[in-house]
């Protein structure tokens, strides 16, 4: 069985990596202008100023990289929150953390636009991180009061609504010029990302994701319950703080550049746990990262191509595929409890 498990994990990892490569290429090749794979390669390798090159290198490539990295970030962020709250349907979107980030980013953007300043990538992440932490603080305060996992989720959804309505309010009174920008972004989309954003996104996401990977040992102990983890020598306070900060950074990064993207954080870890047959963080964290990349690349591809040239918001697609998985996660948990 030990061996079977190792084989299963290897096969699943290989499949995920292949899938992510496939969708990455499709994401670059597909779209309103069809570009063949060989053209893509040529466009990328020679630096000539053809239309294909512009489309590929300046629009589609950053978009694909962002979809992959941010998808991975969302999934890992979700898994961290699920472990933190011992609740399989926790995630940055359902707990209102994405919406908190959305609110502060929108406010920051509006204020700076009035003074004709453009926020840098790092500043965007910073303001989103601030908003994430605000929502997170609210959720943590409430989580001390609610013992039941559905109540926690309802509280999170409510926080999300409050943040969203404040954002809408702010957008209503924003300058006309800003609205188009803000509106697109606040619906969730990978379209606004340029090559300039990519270095910051890459560094932030990869650092935070690897930090979470190195938390997988104490997180594994934490899954047994706080008392057991403490008995095993886990510094609970430090671990909890680390999980909160890392998940906030990851979801802040997503919201800063792509707006709130729904359900990926819950759906992907759930699918990964099912696929790999384990909840061991050492496996689930890297697998969720790749899985999230695949999921978001695929969803973005659908969002771009389904009704091309009209582009759907990414959340429209992730919700269609993600929400049923969230329901499934909730139900599977209930039957498990009843069976035990």
């Amino acid at each position: 069985m030990q061996k079977n498990r190792a084989i299963r994990w290897t096969v699943c990892f290989a499949a995920l990596i292949i899938l992510s490569a496939v969708f990455f290429l499709l994401e670059i090749a597909g779209g309103t202008t069809d570009i063949s794979f060989s053209d893509v390669l040529r466009a990328l390798t020679d630096g000539s100023d053809t239309a294909a090159h512009t489309i590929v290198a300046e629009i589609r490539l950053p978009r694909a990289i962002a979809a992959a990295l941010l998808g991975g970030a969302l999934s890992v962020s979700g898994f961290l929150l699920q472990t933190f709250f011992a609740n399989p349907i926790a995630g940055p979107y359902v707990l209102g953390i994405s919406s908190g980030a959305k609110l502060t980013v929108a406010l920051a953007m509006m204020i700076t636009m009035q003074h004709n300043i453009l926020l840098s990538s790092a500043e965007m992440i910073g303001s989103a991180f601030f908003g994430s932490l605000l929502s997170m603080a609210a959720i943590l305060l409430l989580s001390g009061k609610v013992k039941n996992m559905s109540q926690l989720i309802i509280a999170g959804v409510m926080i999300g609504y409050i943040c969203s309505s404040v954002t809408e309010l702010a957008v209503t009174f924003a300058d006309d010029a800003n609205i188009v920008n803000l509106h697109n972004w606040s619906m969730g989309s990978f379209s606004g990302i340029s090559m300039d954003n990519i270095p910051v996104i890459t560094v932030t996401v990869l650092l935070a994701a690897s930090a979470s990977f190195f938390l997988s040992k104490p997180m594994g102990a934490f899954q047994l319950g706080e008392s057991y983890a403490q008995n095993l020598g886990v510094d609970i306070r430090r671990l909890k703080l680390a999980m909160i900060l890392i998940s906030s950074v990851l979801s802040a990064c997503v919201t800063a550049f792509a707006g709130p993207v729904s359900f990926v954080g819950v759906a992907v870890p759930h699918l990964i746990k099912n696929l790999f047959g384990t909840a061991r963080p050492l496996i689930v964290i890297p697998a969720s990262f790749i899985g999230g990349a695949v999921f978001c690349l695929a969803c973005d591809l659908v969002a771009r191509t389904l009704f091309a040239p009209v582009e759907l918001s990414i959340s429209t697609i992730t919700a269609v595929f993600g929400a049923p998985v969230v329901v499934a996660a909730m139900l599977s948990r209930r039957t498990q409890k009843r069976g035990a």
Binding site: F214, Y228, L232, K273, T278
Partner: peptide, 23 residues
Amino acid sequence: TDLERMTCEDVVSSGRYPYTGRL
């Protein structure tokens, strides 16, 4: 505690936590 997707062996293995390395 609600243990998600853990085999009995996984649970017993967690007892080795203080003796294992970084990962």
